[in-house]
């Protein structure tokens, strides 16, 4: 998929967070590549994974740069780097695992700690709804939690595709509604080699993406 710089309206930075094994990488893989790897076939994410997908909202094309972070506690200090400049954050839990839902409080705490923009759009996503028989967190309970936290809420299944497109569409639409985030919606630095001042005596500043 070759898309040139001028063909899309803006770049949005989106971050996926949540406990390990809730299916963040699977959700992303379904969204960007429309494939599914069963849990036992996907190695744990170390550090961060990065994927790009284009999405059309109201006839405008947006480039989504999506950061898929490692879920284990140990990696969280490093995750702070990835929060920088994010316009949307997706907090994922597993509907069949209460602990991953209860940990959302901690993830919110961290989000507020590291997110540079207080208007950042937050969304709670309950994954693995295909496992209806072992569901522990009801839609109602999660919805109530999301209302209280004033965040978006979607349930989905990376395995069956159910709700996956909705996750990102809903999130992007919300980002586009927020004027404070609009200012930040500029294509990411498109510096090519030619634009780089080769004279190293010149001073320049690099923005954080």
């Amino acid at each position: 998929m070759e898309v040139k710089v001028e063909e899309y309206h803006a770049t949005l930075k989106i971050l996926l967070i949540g406990n390990s094994n809730v299916g963040k990488s699977s959700l992303l893989l379904r969204f960007t590549d429309d494939t599914f790897l069963p849990q036992e076939s996907a190695a744990a994410t170390i550090g961060v994974d990065f994927k790009v997908r284009y999405i059309v909202i109201d006839d405008k094309k947006y480039k989504l740069t999506i950061w898929d972070t490692a879920g284990q506690e140990r990696f969280r200090a490093l995750t702070s780097t990835y929060y920088r400049g994010a316009q949307g954050v997706i907090l994922v839990y597993d509907v069949s695992n209460r602990e991953t839902f209860e940990q959302l409080d901690n993830w919110f705490h961290e989000l507020h700690l590291y997110c540079t923009n207080k208007d950042v759009v937050k969304m709670i996503v309950g994954n693995k709804v295909d496992k209806e028989h072992s569901r522990i967190i009801s839609s109602k309970e999660a919805e109530a939690y999301a209302d209280k936290a004033k965040t978006l809420f979607v349930e989905c299944s990376a395995k069956t595709r159910f709700g996956v497109e909705e996750v990102f569409e809903k999130l992007v639409k919300k980002i586009l509604e927020k004027p404070s985030l609009q200012k930040k919606i500029e294509p990411q630095i498109q510096v090519t080699k030619r634009e780089v001042p080769t004279n190293t005596q010149s001073t320049y500043c690099c923005s954080n993406v």
Binding site: I46, V48, F50, L78, T81, K193, T200, Y204, C206, V209
Partner: peptide, 17 residues
């Protein structure tokens, strides 16, 4: 190195893993 700095390509994004 300078080019990567300019593009803000922090080593955390690749060398961590």
């Amino acid at each position: 190195w300078e080019d990567l700095e300019l593009k803000a390509l922090h080593p955390t994004y690749y060398s961590f893993r």
